[in-house]
Design a protein around this nucleic acid. Structure first.
Length: 290
DNA sequence: ACACATTATCTGTACTAAGC
DNA sequence: GCTTAGTACAGATAATGTGT
């Protein structure tokens, strides 16, 4: 499955949308290099479109996204009256086409617990170029809401609402990719990560984690390494340091007490770990960023 | 339908490294 | 220096694919 992978921020931007019908024998217009993404969703009938070497048969409940930099053309006429929602949107940040079968786990997409307090953390959105909708009626409803807002689109608050609806639509499209149906390994890693988030202050042994997640500790470590690029203990350590950073900036607690609060029994060990992860000691971190 | 091959998932063991 | 965790490798099992 071809996926469109966008790096955000900036978030993709809604431009306009509508509904059009093609009569029996009609076809989608041929266009070249239209500069915006063109999302097409069929509600009844079926239309046929090509993009360079790719061919798409867009039946009811199916969506296709045409690239802004390619030539699009009808590959055959509609066999019956065909209704299509369409939408133009702009992607301001970097984007690329990837193959879902060989796509690696994005390195810049770690667990949200590692967010830096003062920096926007980039992440990626992956939406399939050609996919059946998981919940077509919900998607149609979003288009209808966008349509109702159109007459007042000169009002800023209405435009804002349009963007929100558009982002919800993107989320629905992203849900139809495999990433929303995690592999067993991903599910295992997420389950373990979730347990560690809830118990990061406690000393969680590998066996204990395995008992709670219902997988072998070796397998959990392998899954977390694959998913998050670190082992369970390293993951827990980073969680603790992340929380410690917040406590250092938001409270006046002594450094030793901060370490204790996030699960370090020995203040010296806390300082060592903090320095290893952050590059500076807890005290200097507080001085520099408070 | 059956047998066999392949692939994915998960576990066990041994060794090494790190924590305390 | 002991204990525990992580990694590499091997292998068991089940699911899926393929050929006859």
């Amino acid at each position: 499955m071809a996926l469109i992978e966008m790096t955000v921020p900036p978030l993709p931007h809604y431009i306009t949308s509508g509904f059009s019908t093609l009569p029996k024998g009609g076809h989608h217009p041929s266009r070249n290099n239209i500069q915006v993404f063109d999302l097409l969703i069929t509600t009844y009938g079926c239309f046929y479109i090509g993009e360079e070497d790719a061919r798409f048969e867009v039946a009811p409940g199916q969506a296709v996204i045409l690239r802004p930099d390619r030539y699009h053309f009808a590959t055959q006429s509609c066999a019956e009256l065909t209704g299509t929602y369409w939408m133009h949107f702009h992607v301001g940040g970097p984007w690329s086409m990837i193959d879902n079968a060989i796509a690696p786990i994005p390195l810049e997409d770690p667990s949200p617990v590692f967010v830096e307090p003062f920096a926007a953390q980039p992440f990626t959105i992956r939406i399939p170029q050609y996919t059946p909708l998981l919940q077509p009626e919900k998607t149609y409803d979003l288009f209808e809401q966008l349509h109702q807002l159109q007459p007042r689109a000169h009002v800023s608050s209405v435009r804002f609402a349009q963007q929100q609806l558009f982002h919800e639509l993107l989320r629905q499209l992203a849900a139809s990719t495999d990433s929303e149906h995690p592999s067993p390994a991903t599910a295992c890693a997420e389950k373990a990560a979730s347990y560690l988030r809830q118990h990061y202050r406690e000393a969680v042994s590998a066996k204990e984690l395995g008992d709670h997640v219902n997988f072998h500790p070796v397998y959990i470590a392998r899954c977390m390494q694959k998913e998050y690029g670190c082992s369970p203990t390293e993951y827990q350590l980073r969680l603790r340091i992340q929380q410690a950073k917040l406590l250092l900036l938001q409270t006046d607690l002594p450094v030793a007490h901060v370490g204790e609060q996030v699960g370090f029994e020995q203040p010296a060990y806390f300082a060592t770990c903090f320095t290893r992860i952050e590059g500076i000691s807890p005290r200097k971190y507080r001085q520099r960023f408070s």
